[in-house]
Computed example of a mutant assay.
Amino acid sequence: MARGEAVDDGNWVPPVGSWASSAARRRNMQAIRSRDTTPERLVRSLVHAQGFRYRVAARPLPNLRRTADLVFRPAKLAVFIDGCYWHGCPEHYVPPKTNSGYWSEKVARNMARDRDTDDQLRTAGWTVLRFWEHDPAEECALKIAATVSRLRDGRA
């Protein structure tokens, strides 16, 4: 029986080198959404209710293999709503107890990629707004609306 295949008794065996330490962990990790999270949906609905239209989970730059949560192309505004765990929130991030080396390095890579994304977008003339998932959706939506309006009016 090869690793990674289900056995007759229903036990799952992780493939060699798998990041999932158990079948339960694998299910848990697969259930984590990368888009359309509750904080994103709340902010999007509030921004939409104010009459603003945007792209969801889109690449701001065609050659940048990263997506922003909301993209306002004409205004050149990219909005990211970062999860506290995955992006290392200074207020809420708690290092994992199991496999801490792997996950801490993963979060550090995410944070470095976030900074690189911000730099590349700013170099290309874009404005970047980042919010934490715990930030009040109403405040995020107001800041987004004000920024889009300012950029559209040419008051960069």
Rank of each mutant, 00 (worst) to 15 (best):
M1E: 12
M1G: 13
M1Q: 12
E5H: 14
E5L: 15
E5M: 15
V7W: 14
V13N: 13
P14N: 09
P15E: 11
V16K: 14
G17H: 07
W19S: 12
A20W: 13
A23K: 13
R27Q: 14
Q30S: 09
R33E: 01
R33K: 12
R33S: 04
R33C: 00
R35G: 11
T38E: 15
R41M: 13
R41V: 12
R41C: 07
R44G: 14
R44A: 13
S45T: 12
G51R: 08
G51Y: 02
F52S: 08
F52V: 08
Y54K: 06
V56L: 15
A57E: 12
P60G: 05
L64A: 03
T67P: 01
A68H: 02
A68L: 09
F72S: 04
F72R: 04
A78T: 04
A78Y: 00
D82T: 02
G83P: 00
C84T: 00
C84S: 02
C84W: 00
Y85G: 00
W86T: 01
H87A: 07
G88E: 06
P90Q: 10
Y93E: 07
K97G: 10
S100F: 08
Y102V: 00
Y102E: 02
S104D: 10
E105A: 14
K106R: 10
V107F: 07
N110Y: 06
M111H: 04
M111S: 09
M111Q: 14
D114E: 12
R115E: 15
R115G: 02
D116M: 12
D116V: 06
T117D: 08
D119M: 07
R122A: 10
W126E: 08
L129Q: 13
L129A: 11
W132F: 01
H134G: 02
P136K: 11
E138T: 13
E138Y: 12
E138K: 15
E138C: 09
A141D: 04
A141I: 03
A146T: 12
T147F: 05
V148G: 02
V148E: 03
R150F: 06
L151Y: 00
